[in-house]
């Protein structure tokens, strides 16, 4: 069992981190959080999270960058917006989750081979190269880069999709996907928290 420091000193907090997150569109109201826990109560995934949404808001606001960006919570958020709608302080919690995900990907602080960030990256790559997404190809890429063995278990699902004509045998694409990729890269360049 590894011995870890469990209590943090004030000097170890990254005090610029909350400012950085709050500078992203949609994330301004983080400091208004009253820690009421309505977000955690409405969240259908909070039972699986390492930090509940309320705890994550507190960690982010206090500058616990490593804990916030390294959490499973941000990846488990399924984007159902229940917290955002119910928050009495009108904090867009879902959008803060997105800002944290983007930061985690850029800084490379996310659980490697964990399928959710892998899916996000593969989705991004497929859109950049084709302009569209072909679902079953995306699923294959995700499995290859996270857990190839898990793919084997999905054979029955694949057969069911083929039987019902819901399986795609070739990649869908825009007419000129390269043009789209140029646009996307242009959009990202120099943008705060952009991917390039």
């Amino acid at each position: 069992m590894a011995i870890k420091q469990t209590i943090k000193y004030d000097s170890e907090r990254d005090k610029s981190f909350p400012q950085e997150i709050m500078s992203r569109p949609g994330c301004e109201k983080l400091y208004g959080c009253i820690q009421c826990g309505t977000c955690s109560a409405t969240c259908p995934v909070s039972t699986y999270m390492d930090y509940t949404p309320r705890q994550l808001m507190a960690l982010t606001r206090a500058g616990f960058k490593k804990e916030a960006l390294g959490s499973l919570t941000i990846w488990l958020c399924a984007s159902c917006y229940a917290c955002t709608v119910e928050c009495p302080k009108e904090i867009k919690i879902t959008d803060i989750m997105y800002a944290l995900k983007r930061q985690a990907i850029q800084e490379g602080i996310y659980p490697k081979r964990f399928p959710i960030p892998v899916l996000a990256r593969e989705f991004y790559n497929m859109v950049r190269s084709k302009g569209r997404v072909t679902e079953n190809f995306l699923a294959v890429m995700m499995f290859l880069k996270s857990n190839p063995i898990a793919a084997i278990k999905t054979w029955k699902l694949g057969l069911n999709l083929m039987r019902t004509g819901r399986f795609a045998y070739k990649l869908d694409s825009m007419k000129q996907p390269a043009k789209m990729a140029t646009l996307l890269d242009k959009a990202d360049t120099g943008w705060k928290g952009g991917a390039r």
């Binding site: 997105y98 989705f123 991004y124 859109v127 997404v133 646009l183 959009a187 943008w191 928290g193």
Partner: peptide, 22 residues
């Protein structure tokens, strides 16, 4: 004609600016 992917939930997790452009 020649629509592109909307970006869905996954794209926003990598890039917001490019997501809005999509």
């Amino acid at each position: 004609d020649d629509w592109n992917c909307c970006g869905a939930t996954a794209y926003m997790a990598v890039s917001d600016a490019a997501g809005y452009v999509l």
